[in-house]
Design a protein around this nucleic acid. Sequence first.
DNA 1: GCAAAAGTGTTTTGTCTACACCCATGA
DNA 2: TCATGGGTGTAGACAAAACACTTTTGC
Lengths: 230, 230
Amino acid sequence: MNRIVQYKEHDSVMVAVDCIIFGFDGKEIKALLVKRGFEPELGKWSLMGGFVNYKESVDAAANRILDQLTGLSSVYMEQLYCFGDVDRDPGGRVVSVAYFALIKIDDYSQELMKEHNAKWVSLNKIPVLVFDHKQMIKVAKSRLQQKVSRQPIGFALLPDKFTLQQLQALYEAIYETVFDKRNFTKKILSLGVLEKLNEKDKETSKKGSYYYVFIRERYSKLENENFTFI
Amino acid sequence: MNRIVQYKEHDSVMVAVDCIIFGFDGKEIKALLVKRGFEPELGKWSLMGGFVNYKESVDAAANRILDQLTGLSSVYMEQLYCFGDVDRDPGGRVVSVAYFALIKIDDYSQELMKEHNAKWVSLNKIPVLVFDHKQMIKVAKSRLQQKVSRQPIGFALLPDKFTLQQLQALYEAIYETVFDKRNFTKKILSLGVLEKLNEKDKETSKKGSYYYVFIRERYSKLENENFTFI
DNA sequence: GCAAAAGTGTTTTGTCTACACCCATGA
DNA sequence: TCATGGGTGTAGACAAAACACTTTTGC
């Protein structure tokens, strides 16, 4: 097979993709972990990952792997970092490109969860993971914190319609802090990217609280300005 | 050779490193380009790059390649992004991990420049480059803008001692804007990370302007606070 | 003595923070 | 009617932006 066209003399290595999949249960940010189904480290907890095929882009591999685990396509995902230490994987020389994805936790079916031996684990209770996967989660968490203040990606973790309380709880979980309710409301509404629905969530209170939706078109007007979500 | 220990069934690809090397000439941010010395695309302009060896981490490869071109070690460098399209390089399946580096433009010797057929090109005059290298520079520029506002990496582009005028010119070049001199001075000095030397640069004016130096230890105190350089 | 760049303060504006009470509802 | 969470405004502190004149010195 004549795969290597012109750079015959150079080494090649395996390239893997690992996905840090975040979800939000209303209180905590959680990462989706799977019990490894193959050697090495069979049976240990790890991120969902897989190898990049020769005729597949790294991005495509990441999407394929995310789809395998979650059955979801068109979720928010971005490349995080390339982990390239020589001995990071005892199974061989594997360079891993990590991606992080944000999904709505309820969209993830229980069946797939069982099928893959997966579980949601809150970020401060991550068990021992294989290889450098714990480091990947750490980097991903830090990236999430950075990103969520300048880009409207947090909404990917919430249902399409959400209350301001849910949104605030999300930001509080991400930053591990608490915000003043009035200031939070004021700031987020002042951006003008949310629309109040004429409908209330009565789950958590008798009075009920209004649902809002994120309007992407309104956001595009802001995009090139200097602002933060929080 | 039994390189692949356990993942025998998976494809492997070549992994390359490309370096976006930025310099500052007092007026403009420039990138260091080289005339490619090998096929494919021999003789075309490109970033400095090379392949990751089997027993070499990706970071180590980046440092090796930077050293090859510049003869400089201990310069600021960080991983930028992994470019993984299938057909990005017509020479074969090559995944490239791009790094960006900041060097003091005068540290780069003319001899090495000639030896590698290298030249400094200002960012808005980048010629046609091989593969996706132009895209890499675009991503690097954007990352530089983000980083320089929160981390003291801009100093890596200036001489050890510099005037406030030089520093302002640097930020203006990076952001392609102009700042008010008084506000800039006030802001940057208020951080308390610069020390005024008892020595003036008389190159650009009769009066002369004081040199300052960046004191890293003073910065470490700020590090975990919420602040910006500009 | 004059041209050229360096150095310096104040006012205004806007943004962020702190803080407490009434409202609507189901039980 | 009361317990629970939802919704709202204002004053003070702080940071950012706008803005112009004096100083130094080599020629």
